[in-house]
Design a protein around this nucleic acid. Sequence first.
DNA 1: ATTATACTTTACTAATTTGTAATGATTTCG
DNA 2: CGAAATCATTACAAATTAGTAAAGTATAAT
Lengths: 154, 154
Amino acid sequence: MKVTALEEYGLRCMILLARNAGVESLTLPEISAKEGLSLPYAGKLLMILKQSGLVKAVRGRRGGYTLAKPPEQIVLREVFNALGEPVFGPNHCERYTENGECCVHNEDCTVRTVWGTFNRFVSGYLDSVTLADLVKGNGNSGKSELPSQVDQSN
Amino acid sequence: MKVTALEEYGLRCMILLARNAGVESLTLPEISAKEGLSLPYAGKLLMILKQSGLVKAVRGRRGGYTLAKPPEQIVLREVFNALGEPVFGPNHCERYTENGECCVHNEDCTVRTVWGTFNRFVSGYLDSVTLADLVKGNGNSGKSELPSQVDQSN
DNA sequence: ATTATACTTTACTAATTTGTAATGATTTCG
DNA sequence: CGAAATCATTACAAATTAGTAAAGTATAAT
C-alpha cells in the first residue's frame, strides 16, 4: 500500500496553494522552487490538478495557479482522486487478473470484500479533512474519530 | 495510493492458507493452481511470507506451507507489513526527497502530519481484522467502527 | 508590435515493480 | 540407495511509474 509520487507531490502543491488562497496566485517557477521540484515536473503535476478542476491557471505575464475553490471546500479525497486511483477502485479486479476474465475468486471473493470495506473506511477519513484543516494545522480534525487504540509502530 | 501486486496476491495466499489451517498443508503447485498464479511467482510470494515468519514451509515429499500461527492470531497489518511498507513508514521522507537531506518541509511539514494521522487511522483498521474474521466472512468486523457516513463512490 | 513571462504539450530516459526462467537443495518413499 | 516431490535461489525480461528535455502557445506590459 503505497503513496505514489504524484499523490505525495500533488498534495504538497495543493497545500502550498491553499496557504496562498485569496492572497495571490503562484507561478510554476515559484511552486517548483518552494517545493524543490523540477520545473517540468511541477508543470506536469499542476496540469493534472488543473484537468481535474482543482486548480485554475492563467497564462501569460501575471499568470499563475490558484485553487478553483476555497480550501474549506476541498476535501482530501478529491485531491487523491485527481492524482490516482482509490485503494479499491473500479479497475482493481481487472488489474489483478490472471486468467482472462476476472480473478479466480469470482463467486466468493474474500479479498474483494476486504478492499471494499477498507476503501470505505479510508474514504471516511479522506472526506473529513479539508485543505483548510491542514493549513490550520489539524490534519486529524474532521468528523471521523481515530480508533481508540492508536499504535504508532509499523 | 495503491495496493501493490505483492500485497494483493500475498493476502490471497494467506486467506487460502487460513481456510486450510489445521486441516492440511498446501504445496506450491496447489497454491499456484488455486490462485491462478504462476508457480515461480507463487514461490516468490510464499518465500516472502515465510521470511517474515507468517508461514512455515516443509520441504520434500509431503511438504508444503502452513500458517505459522492460528488465523485468529494473525492480523491484517502483519500480513501487509510483510509484503510492503506501510502508507507512511520510516522511509517515506527519505523516498520523497528532492534536495539531498530530507524534503523541503523540514520545520513545518504539513504533509508529514497528514500521512502520520492517516497511517494511524488505517492501522487501527488493519489491527482489528484477523484472517479468521475474513474466512468467517466478516471483513468489516473488528473493534473499529466504520465512519457513519459511508460513501461508495470514488 | 515586440518581448518577457508563464502555462501547455509531446516525446523521451531512467528507475522501480512485476513477473518469468532455469537451476539448486532437501526430504521422504520405495 | 535413488528417484520423485517439494521448497529455495539467482538471474533476467517486461511493464509500469517517475522524472527530464525541448519546443510550442498565450498573455500583458512596454
